[in-house]
Structures are given as structure tokens and as C-alpha cells.
């Protein structure tokens, strides 16, 4: 399978503090890829670098065939239209309702007529498992789970093939979290998505993620699937995954 994200010798630093020290990994097409690690190890930073929100790094990053080191303004715009990002707290535009939140990128980037856009929006609302009557609610009127679903619908508005999820199940109750996991799996199969996600949720890691990396102490300490992880000697991995045995 082809790689849609290739990262080589990525080094990130803030002022004098090094966050990642020469890390390399790749993400394959149609894969759900996890970024794991203890708090403060730079998982979210890594995710933000992959979606061009953070540019404080050295090294080669290649996403969807675009080399980040030679990215023209136009390429950057094109890339940003071709992926979707789901932020940890949804980050829906608070002055727009769910419908308008999804409508925004469609109006901005396509010339489709209103009726078709309407159909598309209603389809997206449906596919992420929201009710049609939720469309006219404002973000402040939504529960945490609904906010994430609405934000997911917005991220999918332009039929992105690549999704970045920042802790998609955090802050959700266990039932909603499992529902959200199922939703992500379903969408991956239905829409041929490739997904990169940061997660802390063990159940979600077991259920959804195909392959993951574990960041610890500025390095990647593990890269592979869930089967091989137990053999690794690393205090974070050992504590984190032994929790899984007791669950």
C-alpha cells in the first residue's frame, strides 16, 4: 500500500527545548494511525505539524505527495482543502449553527448550487449520526459528543480523504466514546479515509487503531501494531498497556 504521509528525521524545538529528536515514520493509505505517548511528549504538536498549523521544525515531511519544505502558497491552500482536522474540543464556529458550520467550506470552495449543497450537508449530518433536527442548533446547545460529531461532519464537508483527529474520544462518556470509535471505523470503510489520530483512550486504541507510534523522551519508542507492543521495554508502554490487561 502506498504511503500518504512520510516523515523523516523530524526535529521540533520551541526556543531551546527540543520536543522531537529526529523521528521518522510513515502512514499508509486507508489506515487508522495512532500517535501515543505520555502527556507533554509532543503528540498534539506532531499532529499540528502534519496539518501545517505548526512550522517550527526541521526535517522532511511529505503529506499526500507534497513536500513541506517546498510548499508554495498555492500548494498549501490545496493541501488544506484536501484534509480535515478534528480538534480536541471540536472548535466549531460558535456564532454559526451546525448546518452553517458544515456549509462554510462548501460555500467557500465550491460553486455548487444551494440545493445540492443542502443535500450534501444533510448527508454529512446523517452519516456522522446526528439528527436532522440538530442541524439548527448552535454549538453552545450541543453536548460534548454531538459537538465532536458536528466537527467531524465539518471536517468531512469537502470529502477529505485524510483526517487528523486530536483525542477524538476524550471528554466523552464511555458509551459515546465507543459510538464514536464505531463511527470512525464505519466512515473509514465507507469513505476510504486515512486517519491519523492522537489518543489516550486504551479501548479506542484496541478497537480502532491499525498501527501506531509511541513517543517518549523525544524519540519514537515503538512503531507497529498492538501485538508487538508488550515486548518493548519502556516504562510508559509497560504501565500504559498493562492497564489494558485489567480492563
Amino acid at each position: 500500500m502506498q504511503d500518504i504521509i512520510k516523515v523523516e528525521n523530524l526535529t521540533t524545538f520551541f526556543d531551546e527545548k527540543i520536543i522531537h529528536n529526529k523521528i521518522s515514520f510513515n502512514v499508509k493509505k486507508n489506515e487508522i494511525f495512532g500517535i501515543l505517548g505520555p502527556s507533554g511528549c509532543g503528540k498534539t504538536t506532531l499532529l499540528r505539524e502534519l496539518c501545517l498549523l505548526e512550522k517550527n521544525f526541521n526535517g522532511d515531511v511529505n503529506v499526500l505527495g507534497y513536500d513541506f519544505n517546498r510548499l508554495s502558497q498555492k500548494d498549501e491552500q490545496k493541501l488544506k482543502e484536501s484534509w480535515g482536522v478534528l480538534f480536541q474540543f471540536g472548535a466549531l464556529f460558535s456564532s454559526l449553527n451546525v448546518y452553517e458550520n458544515i456549509q462554510k467550506p462548501l460555500l467557500e470552495y465550491t460553486k455548487l448550487d444551494k440545493k445540492l449543497i443542502d443535500d450534501i450537508i444533510r448527508f454529512k449530518i446523517d452519516i456522522v449520526g446526528l439528527k436532522q433536527s440538530d442541524a439548527y442548533l448552535y454549538p453552545s446547545e450541543l453536548s460534548g459528543g454531538m459537538k465532536k460529531k458536528a466537527a467531524l461532519a465539518r471536517a468531512l464537508a469537502l470529502d477529505a480523504k485524510l483526517l487528523f483527529l486530536d483525542e477524538p474520544t476524550s471528554g466523552l462518556d464511555p458509551i459515546s466514546a465507543r459510538e464514536f470509535d464505531a463511527l470512525i471505523l464505519k466512515l473509514r470503510d465507507l469513505l476510504d479515509l486515512s486517519i491519523v489520530m492522537v489518543s489516550h483512550d486504551l479501548r479506542s486504541i484496541y478497537d480502532t487503531i491499525d498501527r501506531f507510534i509511541v513517543l517518549d523522551d523525544k524519540k519514537i519508542v515503538y512503531d507497529g501494531d498492538i501485538k508487538g507492543v508488550k515486548e518493548v521495554k519502556n516504562s510508559f508502554i509497560n504501565t500504559f498497556f498493562s492497564l489494558g490487561d485489567s480492563v
Partner: peptide, 11 residues
């Protein structure tokens, strides 16, 4: 095809 165009084609 993507979902948007599939919606149109279906119509």
C-alpha cells in the same frame, strides 16, 4: 466518485 458527486449522480 466522492459523496457529493454521488449525491448528484443518484439524483
Amino acid at each position: 466518485v466522492d459523496t457529493a458527486s454521488a449525491i448528484y449522480i443518484n439524483k
